[in-house]
Simulated scan of single mutants.
Amino acid sequence: MRTAYLIVTVVAALWVGFSAFSLLRRAPFVVEPLVTYGVPETWWTPLGLAKAAGSSVCWSAYSSRRSASPPPSA
């Protein structure tokens, strides 16, 4: 279960980090849906920063679990 937790955490951190990077770069494949949905452009940077913060939280969770001592054997 520990391996599954770590894999899901790393994948989520990478996914959200890529999303934040793409939004902050104003990548067309990210911007077009935002325009279509009517999201104001003034919200894009705060949204990208919030995504980047979420990615860093995932990485910190991964790092803390990785450095923690292994669970006792049953």
Rank of each mutant, 00 (worst) to 15 (best):
M1D: 15
R2I: 10
A4I: 07
Y5F: 11
L6F: 05
L6T: 05
L6D: 04
V8Y: 10
V8Q: 08
V8M: 11
V8A: 14
T9C: 09
V10L: 12
V11I: 11
V11K: 03
V11C: 06
V11W: 04
A12S: 14
A12W: 02
A12T: 07
A13R: 02
A13I: 01
L14P: 01
L14N: 03
L14E: 04
L14D: 03
W15M: 09
W15T: 12
W15G: 07
W15V: 09
V16P: 00
V16N: 01
F18C: 10
S19K: 07
A20S: 14
F21L: 15
S22F: 09
S22I: 05
S22T: 10
S22V: 05
L23Y: 02
L23S: 07
L24V: 06
L24N: 03
R25N: 10
R25E: 07
R25T: 07
R26K: 14
R26I: 05
A27G: 08
A27Q: 15
A27T: 15
P28Y: 10
P28H: 13
P28D: 15
P28I: 12
F29N: 15
F29L: 14
V31A: 06
E32A: 15
E32Y: 06
P33G: 03
L34R: 03
L34G: 00
T36W: 13
T36Y: 15
T36Q: 12
Y37T: 08
Y37R: 07
G38Q: 11
G38D: 13
V39F: 15
V39R: 10
V39W: 12
P40E: 12
E41L: 06
E41F: 09
E41H: 11
E41I: 08
T42S: 10
T42R: 06
T42E: 07
T42Q: 04
W43Y: 10
W43T: 08
W44R: 00
W44E: 01
W44P: 00
T45R: 12
P46S: 09
P46V: 09
P46G: 09
P46C: 09
L47M: 15
L49I: 15
A50C: 11
A50W: 14
K51A: 15
A52C: 06
A52N: 04
A52K: 00
A52H: 02
A53T: 01
A53Q: 01
G54S: 06
G54D: 08
S55F: 00
S55R: 00
S55C: 11
S56G: 09
S56Q: 10
V57A: 14
V57L: 15
C58H: 09
W59D: 01
W59S: 00
S60F: 13
S60R: 08
S60W: 10
A61H: 07
A61L: 09
A61F: 08
S63G: 13
R65D: 04
R65F: 06
R65Y: 04
R66D: 07
R66Y: 13
R66V: 08
S67F: 13
S67E: 09
S67I: 09
A68F: 05
S69I: 01
S69Y: 04
S69L: 05
S69H: 05
P70H: 04
P70S: 15
P70K: 05
P70T: 10
P71Q: 08
P72Q: 02
P72A: 14
P72V: 00
S73F: 02
A74W: 04
A74M: 10
A74G: 12
A74L: 13
A74N: 09
